[in-house]
Structure formats: structure tokens, C-alpha cells
């Protein structure tokens, strides 16, 4: 099976790169720079007309949605046990968290746009930025509530593909929301960061990063 992932460091494609590392399958990685025009070439736009990552080429098909990729890859490699297939007692929770990852991701994306992409202060709205940060904090509370029963990962039976989807969002969220009041989430993130596959999906030490700062404060209005 030929698998090729088109990737930008620190972007949503990290979810899929991390999962592929967890699955321990062979794949080819094609990396792009977030800040240059490499996602706007005619060749790349053939793959993903929106000029976004990830794009996943898999046995002749092209996928563009990271959540769909995670679900499909877990189905393709059931022996890795990272999915919870139809009929599994955790199936419904697994699906809910897979889609919830995008709820988290949307607030992160809005904050990234405001703090990182829009470099001119007049283009931003601090009202919107503080609203988004509060909503992000609110959606993280659901993870905190889940983890009070002492489980290590989102599924009670252990690590799964939805930890890649949600965990990427948590790793971004810590740049916009202080995790002091969410100790369970902070510990969960530490556990994820300790996984070799997570580390393999992180940028090289000298790479140009989307997120230059560890934390982004909402500017004064």
C-alpha cells in the first residue's frame, strides 16, 4: 500500500503524521513551508484545491480532511488497535471525540489566524480573540471532566487514534489558554508528549515554526 502524506510542521497534518508513526506503517512524507508559496503550486493544488494540508495520497485516492484520514487509517490497519470499529463498546465515544477534535481545532485555528497570521494589529479584534480563548478553555473542560476517573487517555481501554486528533489540539491550545486550572488536561498532554510517535511528528530543532511563542496573550483593545 502506497501512502504519501503532505505535511506542514505544527499544522493539522501533525495529527496524521503522528498517527502514521503510531501505526508503524511505511509512508512517504512531503513537507511544505507554511510561509512560502509551496502550497500554492499548480501541482499541489491538483491534490488539494484549497491549498491546505494535510493531503493524503493512499492507493490512488486523495484525502484532505484530517478526521476522515484518522478514521480511515484506523480501519485500514485494525491490527494496531487504534480505532474502535462499528460494534465496539467504545465506538460512539470514539466517534464523538474524533469529531470533537475539530471543535477544539476550530478555536485554535481562529486564534492562530488572529495572533499569528494577521500580523498587522489593526486587522485583529481583541474582543474576538478573548472570546475565542474563553471558548477554547470551555471546550477543554470536557477533557478535564472525562479524565477525573483516572484514565490515561480518552478511551478507557487505552491510547487510540482520537488521542492524536484531540492531543494535537491540546498541544496548540496551551499557547492560548493557561492550563493551570485544567491540571488533568496538563497531565494528559505530558503523557502524550512523552510518546515516541508524538516526538517523531514534531519539527526539527532548526525548523521555521508557525508558533514562535510559547504563549500568546490577548492584546489590549
Amino acid at each position: 500500500m502506497e501512502i504519501r502524506l503532505h505535511h506542514v510542521d505544527e499544522s493539522r497534518s501533525v495529527r496524521v503524521l503522528w498517527l502514521l508513526e503510531e501505526l508503524e506503517v511505511d509512508f512517504e512524507l512531503v513537507s511544505y513551508d507554511f510561509f512560502d508559496k509551496s502550497l500554492r503550486t499548480a501541482e499541489y493544488l491538483m491534490l488539494n484545491p484549497a491549498g491546505r494540508v494535510p493531503a493524503l495520497e493512499i492507493d490512488g485516492a486523495v484525502m484532505c480532511e484530517s478526521g476522515a484520514m484518522i478514521e480511515y487509517l484506523c480501519e485500514l490497519f485494525p491490527e494496531a488497535g487504534l480505532g474502535r470499529p462499528p460494534g465496539d463498546p467504545e465506538r460512539m465515544e470514539w466517534l464523538d471525540w474524533l469529531h470533537y477534535a475539530e471543535t477544539i481545532g476550530q478555536h485554535c485555528a481562529n486564534l492562530t489566524q488572529a495572533h499569528v497570521v494577521l500580523y498587522e494589529p489593526w486587522m485583529r479584534s481583541s474582543t474576538q480573540m478573548s472570546l475565542e480563548a474563553r471558548r477554547l478553555s470551555k471546550v477543554l473542560e470536557r477533557i478535564e471532566l472525562l479524565l477525573v476517573d483516572g484514565r490515561e487517555y480518552l478511551m478507557e481501554t487505552g491510547f487510540s487514534g482520537v488521542d492524536c486528533a484531540v492531543g494535537y489540539g491540546v498541544d496548540l491550545a496551551r499557547r492560548f489558554v493557561r492550563l493551570d486550572e485544567l491540571p488533568g488536561v496538563a497531565e494528559y498532554l505530558e503523557r502524550l508528549c512523552a510518546r515516541p510517535a508524538f516526538q517523531a511528528a514534531q519539527p526539527e530543532a532548526d525548523a521555521r515554526r508557525i508558533y514562535a511563542q510559547d504563549f500568546y496573550e490577548v492584546p489590549d483593545a
Partner: peptide
């Protein structure tokens, strides 16, 4: 059609996130 089915579900939410952002603002 498993792949396009999952892709459209994901795409719907990608698009909805833009709508949600426009609604909010």
C-alpha cells in the same frame, strides 16, 4: 464510497467552522 463519505463529513465541518466564525463575528 467509504473515503468520499468520510471526506464529505469532514468537509462539512471544515466549512461549518467558517460559518460559525462568521456567525459569531
Amino acid at each position: 464510497e467509504r473515503v468520499p463519505f468520510l471526506e464529505w463529513l469532514g468537509f462539512a465541518e471544515t466549512q461549518a467552522s467558517i460559518l460559525a466564525s462568521l456567525n459569531m463575528q
